[in-house]
Structure formats: structure tokens, C-alpha cells
């Protein structure tokens, strides 16, 4: 072959459009999933309602009335009726969303950070470090999660903060196990070995090669825990261990209204419906996230 046959006209440099990164692809897939979009919007509405409760609430959630107790829907301007102390149900539902969301998201974020770090440590270090961490987590697994949450917050006393700590402790072992499994899988792959072959330190390998691959499974799992956390938190409040009266809280409302179930069954069902809708939102958004993040990577 002589050099002339190789002399091709120099191609003009092609400017390619910027390619979406991994998160760009995930975002694109989320937007094309109608169920997820609808429930994302509903979730957003719930969050906004809770945040701006003072602006949109028709009544003061603490204002009691000895005359208008346990009134039905629409009674004298109370769209969702009143509770056993004559307080407006809608106002209390709106304000109650604050503690529900806080108790739903707070413990999961905390557990995600602590459990995720411990899991990556256990999975990457392996050996006796991994065994120590994972066997410690197994101790928590020995108890049913509801019982554990009740026991911890019972031991520490009620209150919102203690309830959050109790829930976080319940979730840490589960998140840790997911992170450990993902880390162990990634650690054995050739590209991690190739990174070691460059002489990189452990921190650098974990930061550049492990975290990106462990984040997705942990994030998907944690998002599915939010609804569990909301339910457990309501359960704690119901038992008198979470939020304390008179602070508005859905679980607490369910607890105090249950004696009136034969008087005003629909009014008593409202806090339960709020819990149901909110946790369903988080569940469905989590499912959407799971399938959107399942981008073909290999």
C-alpha cells in the first residue's frame, strides 16, 4: 500500500452534541414514565402543603371548641369536619404532614449516610473488619423491626427526635447490608483491579470507582424505606411514643379519633387516608426510580 492511497481528505472536526451523563439518562427515563410523573407531582403537592401549611390552612390547628366536636365533613366551614376537641381536621392534616414527612425522610437520610458508609467500609475492607460490622448488624436483625423501633424509642422516651433516632437505628442494618452487598460485588471486578494496578490508594479507588456503582442500589433501597418510615412513625405516635400531643400528627390523630369511629367514621378515616396516600406516593416514585436507574450499563 503506498502513501497516496492513505491520503484521505482531512475530515472537519465534528462537534458532537453534549452527551447526557448517567443521571441525565435516568432523568430522561423518569420523565417518560407517566405513573411516576403523576405521583411525583402528588408528592410535591403534599410536600408543598406541609411546608406552606400556615398560609393555606383555614383554621388554627390548636384552636379547640367545646361546642363543635366531632362534626361531619363540611360542617360550618370545616371541610373535613372536627375532631374530639373541636379542632379543624384539615388544618391538623396539613400541619401533620410536616411531622410525617420529617419522620419519613429524616431517619432514612441518616440511616443512608451511616449505614451506607458502614456497608462500603465492610464490603471494601472485607476480612475481620467486614465480619465485625456485618455481625453487629445481624444483632439488630434478630428483632422484628417494629418491635425494635418501639423498644428503642420506649427506652429513650417519647418525642419526635427520639422517634427519629429509633427509626434510623432500625434502618441502618438494612441499608448497610445493601451497601455491603453492592460493594462486595463491585470490589471483585476487573476495573477495580486495574485501578489498583495504577498504584491508587484505597480512598481514591473508593471515591472514583466504588461510590458511583454503589450509590444507585442504596438510593433505590432508601427511597423505598421512606414509606416504611412514615408508617412506623405513625405507629409510634399511635402508641404514644412518637410525637406528643397536642402537636398535630397523623398517627396521633388516628389514635385519638379511634374512639369516635362509630360516631364519625369518615372523619376518623381521614388521617389514615393521608398516611396511605403519602406512603403510596413514595412507594410508587421509588419503583419508578428503580426502573429508571436500571439503565443498560454493560
Amino acid at each position: 500500500m503506498n502513501s497516496q492511497t492513505l491520503a484521505l481528505p482531512a475530515a472537519a472536526p465534528v462537534r458532537l452534541p453534549p452527551r447526557p451523563g448517567y443521571w441525565g439518562m435516568v432523568g430522561g427515563r423518569l420523565r417518560r414514565d407517566p405513573v411516576t410523573v403523576v405521583f411525583c407531582l402528588l408528592m410535591l403537592a403534599i410536600v408543598l402543603a406541609a411546608v406552606f401549611a400556615p398560609l393555606i390552612s383555614p383554621f388554627d390547628p390548636y384552636k379547640e371548641s367545646i361546642i363543635f366536636r366531632l362534626k361531619p365533613f363540611g360542617y360550618r366551614g370545616h371541610p373535613l369536619g372536627t375532631d374530639e376537641l373541636g379542632r379543624d381536621i384539615l388544618a391538623r392534616i396539613l400541619y401533620g404532614g410536616r411531622s410525617a414527612l420529617l419522620m419519613g425522610v429524616g431517619p432514612v437520610v441518616f440511616a443512608g449516610l451511616v449505614g451506607g458508609s458502614l456497608g462500603v467500609l465492610a464490603g471494601y475492607a472485607g476480612g475481620w473488619v467486614g465480619t465485625l460490622v456485618m455481625r453487629t448488624m445481624d444483632v439488630f436483625y434478630a428483632f422484628p423491626s417494629v418491635l425494635l423501633a418501639v423498644a428503642i424509642s420506649g427506652a429513650m422516651g417519647g418525642g419526635m427526635l427520639n422517634g427519629m433516632i429509633a427509626l434510623a437505628l432500625v434502618f441502618i442494618p438494612a441499608v448497610c447490608r445493601v451497601a455491603e452487598t453492592a460493594t462486595t460485588q463491585v470490589r471483585g471486578l476487573d476495573f477495580v483491579e486495574a485501578a489498583r494496578a495504577t498504584g491508587a490508594g484505597h480512598l481514591m479507588i473508593v471515591r472514583h470507582h466504588l461510590l458511583g456503582n454503589v450509590l444507585a442500589p442504596v438510593l433505590v433501597y432508601a427511597s423505598s424505606l421512606v414509606s416504611v418510615s412514615i408508617l412506623l412513625a405513625s405507629g409510634l405516635s399511635f402508641l404514644g411514643l412518637g410525637v406528643r400531643p397536642p402537636v398535630p400528627d397523623w398517627g396521633l390523630m388516628l389514635s385519638t379519633l379511634r374512639q369516635a369511629i362509630y360516631v364519625q367514621p369518615w372523619v376518623c378515616a381521614v388521617p389514615g387516608a393521608a398516611i396511605f396516600v403519602t406512603s403510596m406516593c413514595f412507594n410508587l416514585v421509588s419503583d419508578g426510580l428503580r426502573s429508571a436507574m436500571d439503565v443498560r450499563l454493560r
Binding site: 476487573d190 481514591m204 472514583h208
Partner: peptide, 30 residues
């Protein structure tokens, strides 16, 4: 640094979350 290894092409020889340039640039970064 002076001796390097090329692995068998497999699903796991490159980090699935990293563009090719970043995978190659990791060594110089180190």
C-alpha cells in the same frame, strides 16, 4: 507505574459509570 496490565475484555474491565476518557485519565490523576 512502570508495569501495567491489560485485562481480558469483559463486562467488568471498565467502570460502567465512567466515560472512557475518565477511565483512562484515572492513572494520570493517581
Amino acid at each position: 507505574r512502570q508495569a501495567q496490565m491489560v485485562f481480558q475484555d469483559s463486562a467488568s474491565s471498565l467502570n460502567p459509570r465512567m466515560p472512557a476518557r475518565d477511565s483512562v485519565a484515572f492513572g494520570p490523576r493517581v
